[in-house]
Design a protein around this nucleic acid. Sequence first.
DNA 1: GCATATTTGTCCGTATGTATA
DNA 2: CTATACATACGGACAAATATG
Lengths: 237, 237
Amino acid sequence: MRSVPAHSPADALAGLMTLAGRSSTSEQAADAIRQHITDGRIRPGAQLREEALAAALGVSRNTIREAFRALSREGLVEHVLHRGVFVREVSVRDVEDIYRTRRLLEPPGLRAAAGRPAVIRALDEIVTGAETAAATGDWASVGTADIAFHRSLVDACDSLRLNRMFDQLFAELRLAFAVIDEARALHEPYVLRNRHMTTLLVGGAVDEACGELDRYLRDAERQILGALDGEQATSRP
Amino acid sequence: MRSVPAHSPADALAGLMTLAGRSSTSEQAADAIRQHITDGRIRPGAQLREEALAAALGVSRNTIREAFRALSREGLVEHVLHRGVFVREVSVRDVEDIYRTRRLLEPPGLRAAAGRPAVIRALDEIVTGAETAAATGDWASVGTADIAFHRSLVDACDSLRLNRMFDQLFAELRLAFAVIDEARALHEPYVLRNRHMTTLLVGGAVDEACGELDRYLRDAERQILGALDGEQATSRP
DNA sequence: GCATATTTGTCCGTATGTATA
DNA sequence: CTATACATACGGACAAATATG
C-alpha cells in the first residue's frame, strides 16, 4: 500500500520509456525523465548519471546528454560543469520569486476569467474534482487540481507565452512540493479557498475574489517557506 | 559601407568562437550561434547544418547537436525531425501574441517604475542614448535602446522569471525586426514616444504614461504586422 | 514514380580532463 | 597526493529519412 521508494534515479526509470512515438529518442528520453521528476519519483538534489540513465532507458549517452540540455533550459535540472546534472532544488529565493510573479500575474487572469462563463464553469469543475479527491484522501490529485485551477486563471489571459512561463513555474513549484512530506496539510486548506473564489466569481464579486486570491498566495508562500525551512533543518543538522 | 552578406550560416560563423571560457564547448557554440542570429547575420528561415557548423566552429557534430537542443528550448531555432534546425520565423500569430503579452505586463512594470527614482533615471539615460544614436543615423542602436527601455519597465517588477520570459520575447521580436529592411521607419517614431513616457513619469503623471504606453504598443504591433505582410508578399510572389 | 545523394538520428569506442574520496 | 569515477568531447560508423535529379 505504500509507494515504492526508488533506490536510484536509474532504477526508477528502468524500462519505462515507450519508444513508439513520433518524436526523436532524445525527446522521449527527456519526456521520461521529466515525468519522473514532476511525479516526485526522482527527488530534488538527486544526480542523474549519464551511464546509468542511458542503460536504464536503453539509449546512448549522447542521446541522454541531448535530453539533459533541453531539461536544463526548462529549469528542471541543473547542469554543473564537469560534475553532472542534478534535479533542481528550489531555494527560498526561488519560492519568493515564484510567488511574487504569481501575485503579479494571476489577478489580471482572474479579472479576465470573470467575464467568461465558460472559464468560470471550468474552474467550478476543477474545484468540484478537488473536493471529491479530498474526500477520498487523494492529496496528490488535490495538489494537481490546485495547480490546474490557477493555471486556468493565467490561461484566461490568452497569452501563449505567459502560459508557457507558468507551466515552467508550476513545474518548479511541484519540485518544492516534492520535498514536503505532509501532502494533506500542504493542499487541504486551499480547496476551500478556491471554492470561495469560484463562488465569488459566480456572484460577480470580482474585487472580493481578487482579495481572496491575494490572501491565498501570501498564505501559500508562507506555508511553503516554512516547510522548506523545516526540511533544510532536518536534512542538514 | 554596406554590411557583408553571408553566403551561408556556416560562412558567417567561421572562426568566430572564442574557446577560452568557463563554460562547456556546446554552450560556447550555442552562444556563438545565438549571437549571429540576434545580430541578424543568419536570417530567419535559414537552415543550420550540423556538419557545416561543426566544421566552422571546430567542434564535433555531437557538440553542435547539444547546442541545438538548448537553442531550440529558447525558441530561437526550430527543430524539425529528420529535416534539421532552422532559425525561427515569427508568424503573424506570434507577433500578435507577443504584443498581447506586452500590453498585459508592461503597464504594471511602468507603475512599479513610477515609484523609483533610480529606475526613472535609468530610463532617461536610455532614451538620451537613443536620441544621440538617432541623430547619427545608427538605427540598430536605436532599436537596441528601445528594447532596453521596455526591458527596464519589466525589470521594475522584480520578478526574475518574468524577466527571463521577456528576454526570450524580445529575442523573438528581434527575429521579426531582422526580416524588415527599413530600420529607420521601424525604430525612429518610438524614440519620441519613449521620451514622452519618461517626461510623464518624471512629472508623476502615471496614468497618462500608461495611456501612452498602450498606444505605443498598439501602433508598434500594427507597424510590424504591416511590414511582415509586405515581406511575405515580396518573398513569396 | 524511381534511383541516388545528402543529411539527420543514433550508437559506439576512446582519449582527456576534472572533481572527489 | 594518488586513485577512481565521472563528465566532456571527439571521430567514426551505419540506419533511416529526406531531398534531388
